[in-house]
Write a protein that binds this DNA or RNA. Structure first.
Lengths: 196, 196, 196, 196
DNA sequence: AGATAACCGAGACGGTACGTCATGTCTTAAT
DNA sequence: ATTAAGACATGACGTACCGTCTCGGTTATCT
């Protein structure tokens, strides 16, 4: 198994493959996504996929990254001074995303890959979810400076306090994800984080 | 396709299938679990599996339920009067479970199935995870009666406040799951839930 | 690799495969014969072919045997008492076969398989060509009894003296295969075999 | 597709390719000979092969011609005056060649190519086998002049009478190729060819 | 001497077929 | 009627080569 030379790589094929993968998931679902289908749809030989990606999961993750927004955008949270309002806005947006079937399917697929292939973990966590978590942490840091959040609060945990419950409810479908739920969560979080 | 008659079902085959499925996951991982492998290991015809279960996920879930503890046991939390201590004990136990490779693999498989097959959701959520959530809710209700938790707190959300973060951290592997982390979580939760 | 159980074998699939293989060679030539094409044409899974035959060559040979006349027929040469006339008739018939594009293609394929796969040799030699050689030897034996052939002549070699040259000329295409050529050959052979 | 300019052809690459092809057949057999393997072994780009040869068969034939003796040598048969002795010597040598695994493999490959690719026929027949046949014909012609062979005998057929049977027996493996067999063949041939 | 072609090595590309694996359906014999 | 056994059509897997197609890097002529 010799390693291919990236300099000679066909950018056209690369894009065709990512587009095909992304569209196929949107159209038929991740379960029916196959390397053969991607290759056929992209008008590409299977080997071209196997040459550059280790698994269909890797193709999909890269497709999501390069299609869905990409990495160049600004993910930072609003900072109006009203921490509660700002967090409510973000959590409501997340709830909305989970309620959008299209985005929900992508999220489902991403999490599935996370579970299936540990080697994929870093890729997904750091590049897809990480930035959002980091941005939220930044907003909390700002609030900390403003004295709205306890100075000694562990902000990594604080972020999980906000997102963990939504994630839990989404994964387990224990109850519907509503704006009211988002608001309740923010209220709880503020209670937990408030300075002594 | 006629529905089979459960009265004539071979209990011996049923047990052999569940045992085989459980052991195979433990030995080779859920990814390599196949109907054919289960049938071969159990010394059973493939049809016997297809006759009684809709998918390999269903076999696995039933295997986990019947092997791993089952449903007959008492899941209720300790109630020493010290809510913080009781919750810490539970969260630490959960953290320990996630750190046990054997149990972690099972949890992984269960969540994977959850993501893959929506029809499996009720089964898994209600029978595997539900009881734990319910027991925790019960303990919180007791604390509520004791005035340690705000009377108007939404206990469903309160439970998620405890488990959501651990779950989030486990799934995303953002940071190690430690007892200290469990304790921090309990502290935050108590802050969020304390009466006004 | 477990050996399959011939009792459960589908006779219908077997015939469909052999027919498909035979027809495909006739239509597109042996070079383009693939297992996939046979399976597709026969409406059969590839595995069903791999289960029962070791190679496409084996399928083809069995196809030729079961289609092209089969083994049940009488291959014995005419015995009019005039050895020369009888042999001329046979050699002319062989020359005609080699000149028939359809039969020539089959012969080509058979000989190709012979060269390619030594394990196929016995099968082809004994079941396809052997009977003809044996029948010819039988006719020569009769001539030997009639005193038309030297009593001590090695009949195996005698048979090769007749067929070897035609075969050589056909394979190497050194010159056209005509009835006159067949006659010349018989004349030479009679000269070589005549009693002292 | 423009025709390349032979003047600029790299002699070094040509030799490397032929050597690689020849050695690969000797080492792994003709069946496993691929253009890619030749190119890799020769340290040559695939295109260089495709530029100068129409098929791997053509490469191989040229390799055999340029490696195995070549065309410059004297193939003429001994002419001691004793036709039988001279022919026996030649046929025994041929039998020995067929019994040498190395040479046998080459012969196998050559005949396989003959069968597979009609366009290769002239090349192989005329350049590899033709000279031997012609030399033998020349020896017979000499014998004809000496009155040891019938004046009206068709010498093309006479040559086939000698080589056809050996070839037949080799291809079909109907019986072992021995010196005794070679001698018998010569005896038969002399009987067939003797003047009336 | 400098330009400019051709060939060269390397190897990526779209394809086709390979031989294997698992799916879910089916048939058979036995219990 | 259920079972163990396993053949079947289907479809995807990951690999091997095919023959074509760029790429830069040498030659080797031809201005």
């Amino acid at each position: 198994m010799k390693t291919p030379n990236p300099a000679r790589r066909s950018e056209q094929s690369r894009r065709a493959i990512l587009t095909a993968a992304f569209d196929l998931v949107a159209e038929t679902g991740y379960a029916k996504l196959t390397i053969e289908a991607i290759a056929a749809r992209a008008g590409v030989g299977k080997q071209t996929i196997y040459r550059w990606w280790p698994s269909k999961g890797a193709v999909f993750v890269e497709a999501v990254l390069s299609m869905g927004g990409g990495e160049g955008q600004d993910l930072s949270l609003p900072d109006t001074g009203d921490l509660g309002a700002d967090l409510r806005q973000v959590l409501r947006a997340i709830v909305d995303e989970y309620n959008d079937p299209r985005l929900e399917a992508m999220s489902r697929a991403l999490n599935l890959e996370l579970l299936q292939d540990p080697s994929m973990n870093t890729e997904i966590t750091e590049r897809v979810m990480g930035p959002h978590l980091e941005a939220t942490k930044e907003r909390l840091r700002s609030a900390q400076r403003a004295g709205q959040v306890a100075a000694d609060a562990d902000l990594d945990v604080a972020v999980e306090l906000l997102y963990g419950p939504v994630y839990h409810r989404w994964m387990l479908r224990t109850a519907p994800l509503t704006h009211a739920y988002a608001d309740t969560l923010v209220e709880f979080a503020l209670g937990a984080l408030r300075p002594a």
